[in-house]
Design a protein around this nucleic acid. Structure first.
Lengths: 198, 198
DNA sequence: GGTCTCTTGGAATGATCGTTCCACTATAGT
DNA sequence: ACTATAGTGGAACGATCATTCCAAGAGACC
């Protein structure tokens, strides 16, 4: 059926995803995407239709390779009681990295939600789904930690944890201390729940 | 002394600020800024030096005319015990507006913090200062509500309130229900503090 | 009224934007 | 080997980007 692709689609998407992540959709020029992927414009348009098509693929890759691996212990059939705490401890380690090399640009989806692209229905739906995944995973973590907790209290805790994470992701670029402080706050919120019912 | 300006600087800045607010710095074209302000490019460059200079003025205007008026009761010499709760109630009313006409684009500074412009030192400092103003005002509100509360507990509550507000501002464009839910969570967090020590 | 200084209008700048087009190349199926 | 099909390279597209330049315009001071 004709000539075959000289590149691995997955690799190209990942390279493009990193560009979108650090530069944003509008800030990522086709020139920079070509440079990062090693593809020329023709191949990109042939494979993804448009810059936007490549971005959609980048979002899917981001969820699958960045978000979900981190949430895996909270999505597994059996959730450890300390899984949620471990999640925030791991996040804190990433955010607090002194080299500033890990997670330097926050979250692709949070950044997109704050851009003009958020008015696009497809993008808005992707952000809602992302937040819903966080919320569901955190709820499972909270359930594993405190099965006896009332649904209202649990909902409150989960909402707070999601918000503290998002807040940290927003602040990463401008104030690493504020970002880690938000995560510390989530950790103490989790611990406070324990101590209240020993 | 020469010819005098035919426009009111404050009005021009406010119009430009609204464009930056809804479109973002990069998304706001000089053409759209000229249209909104009614000024010619020459006048803009003469008065503000560059698009970036106009944006800096827009940020200052945003703080002075949007952020601080809302925080006023929390910054006054005397802070009412319910001032913080009132703040979130007012915010909730804005976010939940069914017409979607109030606060349709979140926060100018949060949006900017999630854009590539956040790597600029001046912008980063502005976002830090914005967050610090929120934090300081909320701390005063928390103090007025519960003077006896321990500093650790208060810091935790304030951090949570700031994060829930930022989270709501991030989600506004894509999910109004999630945004109002975050604010509701802040309100119940505040009320929970009351009930704990009646 | 004359002159000086500052503001404005509008065109023009070069750069960069996303996208398209076409010729060329390489593979799969017959 | 031939042909049909699909991917690639590179130039070119018109549009739009922020910015600059110059001449015309208008009020302030002598």
């Amino acid at each position: 059926m004709g000539r075959q692709s000289a590149f691995v689609r997955e690799d190209a998407v990942r390279s493009a995803r990193d560009v979108f992540w650090s530069e944003g959709y509008e800030g990522a020029s086709m020139a920079s995407l070509q440079r990062a992927t090693g593809l020329n414009a023709s191949s990109i348009y042939h494979s993804f239709g448009s810059k936007r098509g490549l971005f959609d693929a980048a979002i899917e890759d981001y969820l699958e390779r960045v978000v979900r691996p981190g949430l895996a212990p909270l999505r597994a059939p059996e959730v450890a009681p300390d899984a949620l705490e471990r999640y925030f401890l791991a996040a804190r380690a990433l955010f607090a990295d002194p080299s500033g090399r890990t997670l330097p640009d926050g979250c692709l989806l949070v950044n997109t939600a704050c851009s003009g692209l958020a008015r696009d229905d497809g993008i808005a739906e992707a952000v809602r789904a992302y937040r819903a995944e966080l919320h569901a995973a955190f709820t499972r973590g909270a359930q594993a930690r405190r099965p006896d907790q009332s649904p209202q209290e649990r909902a409150q805790l989960v909402e707070t944890c999601v918000a503290l994470l998002i807040s940290a992701l927003v602040m990463t670029r401008v104030d690493r201390d504020a970002a880690t402080a938000a995560l510390d706050s989530a950790l103490t919120a989790l611990q406070h729940q324990e101590q209240a019912h020993p």
